[in-house]
């Protein structure tokens, strides 16, 4: 075990509104400190909007506009163009949204901003469902996971947003996890220095939504990475894939067993899920060699 040096710049304040034990707040702290002071934030309805806080308080030291759910990328584009038009070219625009606001209702605006290669840093906190409204299925909810609107388990796969974004040939796409904070911080720093559209998708195990223990968010997200369910990757210019975490080292069993949302699955479904993860991993590895 080794201590990690962490540069705490104080850009995220205590007393925020996240659930106790939520890894999204932890990720927010790392992201806001990495992105720095000269930043304007856009946040849309999601857990992260709640974490930023209600009027007149704010947990962030940067300004935020609380935008509309389907408009995250469009509003971030507008902020950037507004700043540029007033000579503030060097200000980073940081857009924070959940998976509902990214994979579902915000996908159209996201695709448009990606196609225009807007100079924004878009972070999706992916807790694989509409967790802020009490836990319903989104198109990011994985196969077999139960939610309030898929009590018997979702019958279709999680949408592959990385590949959708890669098809737009934007300069930078990455995935990250609160279990690998140095990796997250480095990716934010790297993305900030790139001109054009950058998207980072951060896996966020939702304590009530996934049915996990209050102290297990980081552990579950680490297992998501280590089992290959949520690999840490970078995609540059939509073409160059790289895997930033160690190889897939674990079966999915421990990852599944810590969550209530998979409690109902049969042994055969478990085998199918493992096969699906293995196949996805193989395709990813093949992409890194292209």
């Amino acid at each position: 075990m080794k201590d990690i040096e962490y540069n705490e710049a104080g850009q995220f304040c205590s007393g925020h509104n996240a659930c106790a034990g939520c890894a999204e707040a932890l990720s927010m702290r790392v992201i806001l400190n990495a992105v720095g002071k000269n930043t304007v934030g856009v946040v849309v309805p999601s857990c992260v909007a709640i974490i930023v806080g209600a009027h007149p308080r704010s947990s962030a030291k940067i300004p935020f506009i609380h935008g509309l759910l389907e408009s995250a990328a469009a509003m971030a584009s507008g902020v950037k163009r507004g700043l540029v038009s007033q000579g503030k070219d060097d200000t980073t625009v940081l857009c924070l949204a959940g998976d509902g606001g990214t994979y579902d209702i915000g996908l159209q605006a996201l695709s448009s901003a990606a196609e225009r290669n807007e100079d924004i840093l878009y972070v999706c906190f992916d807790n694989e469902g509409y967790m802020n409204t009490g836990g319903q299925t989104s198109s990011s909810t994985p196969l077999a996971a139960s939610t309030g609107s898929s009590p018997l388990g979702k019958t279709t796969r999680k949408k592959n947003l990385v590949e959708i974004l890669a098809a737009h040939r934007i300069p930078y796409i990455a995935t990250a996890s609160p279990s690998h904070l140095s990796d997250l911080s480095e990716k934010v720093t790297k993305a900030k220095a790139i001109r054009g559209m950058k998207v980072i998708i951060v896996v966020i195990p939702c304590l009530p939504g996934w049915g996990i223990a209050d102290d297990a968010a980081v552990k579950v997200s680490r297992l998501a990475v280590e089992s290959g369910v949520f690999p840490l990757i970078e995609v540059e210019d939509g073409l160059r894939y790289s895997i930033n975490s160690a190889d897939k080292t674990k079966p999915i069993d421990e990852y599944l067993d810590l969550q209530k949302r998979y409690r109902h699955i049969s042994d055969s479904e478990r085998v199918e899920l493992q096969q699906d993860v293995d196949d996805s991993w193989d395709r990813l590895v093949a992409r890194t060699k292209m």
């Binding site: 304007v40 856009v42 506009i65 935008g67 509309l68 389907e70 408009s71 990328a73 469009a74 509003m75 971030a76 584009s77 507008g78 902020v79 163009r81 507004g82 700043l83 540029v84 038009s85 007033q86 503030k88 159209q108 605006a109 695709s111 448009s112 901003a113 196609e115 225009r116 807007e118």
Partner: peptide, 27 residues
């Protein structure tokens, strides 16, 4: 000299207008 952006819908056009105006720009 206006920054013109052409998003994918009127919804996004007005969303960008709102956000740009919130930075102090004339929109």
């Amino acid at each position: 000299g206006t920054e013109i952006l052409t998003p994918e819908s009127e919804h996004s056009a007005m969303a960008a207008a709102v956000a740009a105006s919130a930075t102090g720009a004339r929109v």
